[in-house]
Computed example of a mutant assay.
Amino acid sequence: MAMHLPSNKGRGRRAPMAEINVTPLVDVMLVLLIIFMVTAPLLTAGVPVNLPESRAKALQQDAKPVQIAIDRVGDVYVDTVKVRFEELPQLLAPLAQKRDADGKPPQIFLRADQALDYGKVMRVMGELNRAGLNRVSMVTDAASANDAAGSPAAAPAEAATKDGAQ
């Protein structure tokens, strides 16, 4: 293995070093990678909800859905904004007017704590249906035996309505 060492033969001047030291660059990139890996899961969940487990597969989504969460005490959040249940119809009306490229209303992800009373979840689903938002998916935690990654899954809700809306 040959190595070029600068010699002191030429009047005390050294040749300029033409190599780039990539070790600091690699160190910085690894630290940034770790930071992004730790913070990325924290950016997806806005409201802490203890989700039930499900064996449903995750849905493929193109557009960003509207997140509605109901926490353990029954507080309702639209995205990350806490709203009173009485204000929910006024907030859902403008959402129902928005349409995607196919003319469908926006996708709704409903996240509800597993310890929550079933009636509270159905009240929110009833308001969604009344507003015309019938593309509702209930978000669950994937069953640990079926999904080693443990990523949340969204299962389409089968709403029991007269028109068979989903």
Rank of each mutant, 00 (worst) to 15 (best):
L51A: 03
V49I: 13
A93W: 03
D71F: 14
L95V: 01
I70C: 07
Y118C: 09
R123M: 11
V73S: 15
A142E: 06
I70E: 09
P94V: 00
P6D: 11
P24L: 01
S7A: 07
P105F: 01
N21K: 04
M17R: 10
Q61M: 13
R14W: 04
K57I: 07
L59I: 12
A112Q: 02
Y77M: 08
M1C: 13
L5N: 11
V49H: 11
E127D: 08
R99K: 05
L116C: 00
P94L: 02
G150M: 00
V22D: 10
Q60Y: 13
E86F: 08
A69D: 08
S137R: 02
D117M: 00
L33M: 04
I108D: 00
Y118T: 14
G103L: 01
A143M: 08
P156Q: 12
V81M: 13
A148H: 05
A2K: 14
G164N: 15
F85Q: 10
R11F: 06
T80I: 09
D113W: 03
E53N: 07
N134C: 14
G46N: 09
S151A: 10
L32H: 05
V66Y: 04
P52H: 02
R11Q: 06
Q60T: 12
A160Q: 11
D141C: 00
K104P: 12
A56W: 12
A2T: 15
E158M: 10
L92T: 01
V139N: 00
V78A: 12
S151M: 09
A153G: 06
L42A: 08
V124C: 03
G119P: 00
Q60L: 15
G119C: 05
N134F: 13
L42T: 03
T39Q: 08
Y118N: 12
P89D: 03
R13L: 12
M122P: 04
A112S: 07
Q60K: 08
A149W: 05
F85W: 09
G126V: 01
E87L: 10
A157C: 11
F85C: 07
L51M: 02
R135A: 06
M29A: 11
R55N: 13
Q114P: 00
D163W: 11
M17L: 13
D113R: 03
P89H: 05
P152R: 15
L88W: 02
E19R: 04
R111G: 05
V47M: 07
K120T: 08
A153W: 04
M37L: 11
I35R: 03
L30E: 12
L51K: 03
E86D: 05
P105K: 01
N129F: 14
E87D: 07
P16T: 07
K162E: 15
A93T: 07
V81P: 00
S151C: 08
G126M: 01
A155K: 15
L30I: 14
A2F: 15
R72A: 12
R14Q: 06
M17A: 11
I68H: 05
D163R: 06
R123C: 09
L43H: 13
D79R: 06
F109W: 10
D141S: 02
D102Q: 14
D147L: 00
A148G: 08
E127K: 14
P48C: 02
L32W: 08
A93Y: 06
V76W: 04
K9V: 11
K9Q: 11
G164Y: 12
